[in-house]
Nucleic acid binder design. Sequence first.
DNA 1: GCCGTTTAGTTTCCGGTGGT
DNA 2: ACCACCGGAAACTAAACGGC
Length: 285
Amino acid sequence: MIEIPDAQSHRAVADWLEIHLSIFAASISKAELSSYLEGLSGDESTEAFLSSVWNELLSRQSQYMRPPFIVSERRIIKNTAVTYGVEYLTCLILSLYGVNDHDISGRRMRSAKLFERLSGFALQEYLGGRFFLFGWPALDGTEPAIQARIQQVSTELNERFVEAPAATYKDRGVDIIAWKPFAEGRSCQCVILAQCAAGKDWRNKTTTLPMDAWTKYIHWASNPIKAFFVPCVIPDNLWLEASWEAGILFDRIRIMNLLNGGIPDEQLNQDLLTWTTEQLSEHEV
DNA sequence: GCCGTTTAGTTTCCGGTGGT
DNA sequence: ACCACCGGAAACTAAACGGC
């Protein structure tokens, strides 16, 4: 069993059920959920609340290309025909508990950085192109200075570097730069500047990518478009406004639908496995 | 009054900066 | 060359605000 941080929120309970079914149980009934929630809060949960949880999961089931669970009238059942990789659990834990960094065997595991790395592969899958992890702190083996990184990107993309922001800037809101190159390698191509928000405050970050500034650093032959990655499922009532602010949205539904075949990076899979194991033991009750 | 959104304040991390 | 300090970035929290 794993703890529920916010038993009043139907989305949090829906996230919890996704984790519960992917690790701890083959199925759970509405009555079992109800008595478990009652044990936490003392109050009996209303039928209205339980059915809002059910509706949320029904909606998610219809949007996952390969739904990891099946919702019926009184019971939710794990879909044993579907096994997702560790990236699924990573998104769920980030969505439910937020970001929580700590050291694992002497190595700092940054949750936001792990999410950024897995988002890179989802974006690559979407675009059918390549990606560059631009976010701060720079990956090991990457130049930390922002000017060097921007120059590196413009060289790889064959776009024209003009000037860099002041050296105090870290990533100017951009965590991933993805592009779809042409075979002959000239400039003028589809480029996406993406931002990742792994934490619960993602709503505050949809407007923080200064696209105008980015068109001054690099004179793109064709201007880039924006994208935004979150580990949660973005609710319908926020979808359009968030899109208008942040560009193409990638929430857990889309990330999982894109990473159908898993992540083609052994080191990242290993890091995610280490991180999720640690997180689960921390939240187990 | 309740609920969700917005804003400001705080914490932590980690390079760059500039003084010794 | 070293080191204290500065400031961007990510995240969380609490307080303020406004609609139902």
